[in-house]
Amino acid sequence: MRFPRSSDPELLDVINRYVNPTINGTGRYLRLLHGNFLHDDESERAPFLQSLRAAARAITDEELEILLESEWRSRLTAAWLIGVSRREHFRDVLGDMLLASQLCFSGQGYCFALARFGTEEDALYLAAYLERYLQRPDCQYDQHWAISALLHIDSRAGTEYATRFLTPGGMWQQWSEAQFKPSVPSRFIDELCAWADSPR
């Protein structure tokens, strides 16, 4: 068993069906982590995305809730499945979990899902996250994912929520310069969302 032992057979069943499945030799959650599937060859990426879309259609809301109450791998996978299937009724749950930032890596999935929903409500969650965690140079959490998701929403909706964070000398620059490798925000969420929509 890959995850911490649990006496809950229902949880283990859902994990084994949606988090652990191996496609092309790698577990689903590992391909989602950091958007690793973007680096696959097309021959590997296509079946992975087909499997991901099928899982997003098949999983029930109750099963997603079970995963969201588990550890980071399950939460990361659940958030991706929610984003792919655009189950917007999970918005507040994911937004609150993003702000809480209790577990490593799972915030990547929350940011992806909020970007997929793409509304003002989603932008406000992402902006609140950046407002809180860009003021914490000691926290290298999911700031890159959040700013990329916010830029994605801005580009689709014609809004400017990310602008105030990106002014010269502003919050992003200060936080970034406090890290080991100062960086310019990347638009990688655009590519992730495009692949999620791709018919291939």
Rank of each mutant, 00 (worst) to 15 (best):
D190V: 03
G169F: 14
L126T: 11
A115V: 02
R116G: 00
S101T: 12
C111M: 02
Q102N: 13
A146L: 09
W80L: 01
K181P: 01
S85E: 15
E131K: 13
P47K: 08
L151H: 01
L124I: 11
E65A: 08
G158T: 11
W195G: 07
R2L: 08
A78G: 02
G170P: 00
E44K: 15
F37Q: 05
A100P: 02
E42R: 13
L32M: 09
Q140H: 12
L11K: 10
D92F: 03
E71S: 03
A58Y: 00
W72N: 07
T159P: 03
N20L: 10
R156E: 14
W195S: 10
Y141R: 10
R200W: 13
A194G: 00
D142K: 07
G107A: 13
I66H: 03
A58G: 05
A56W: 02
L30H: 14
Y29P: 10
Q179L: 09
L98S: 04
D154C: 14
W195A: 11
F90E: 06
Y125A: 03
Y125G: 09
D154K: 14
L150K: 04
A162F: 05
D13K: 13
R17L: 06
E62D: 15
M97S: 13
E121V: 03
E120N: 02
Q140N: 05
G83D: 06
I189M: 15
Q179A: 00
M1W: 10
R187F: 07
E44G: 06
M97Y: 10
F105N: 14
Q135T: 06
F165I: 10
I66T: 15
C111V: 09
E44C: 05
S85P: 01
A162Q: 03
L30A: 09
D61T: 14
A115S: 10
Q173Y: 01
E88A: 12
R156G: 11
D197F: 00
C104H: 04
S101I: 00
P182R: 10
L130S: 08
L32A: 08
G158V: 06
D142C: 11
L151A: 00
T22R: 12
Y161N: 11
E71Q: 15
L192W: 14
Y18H: 15
E177F: 07
L11C: 04
L38A: 03
D154R: 13
T22W: 01
G109S: 12
G118V: 05
H144K: 14
C104V: 12
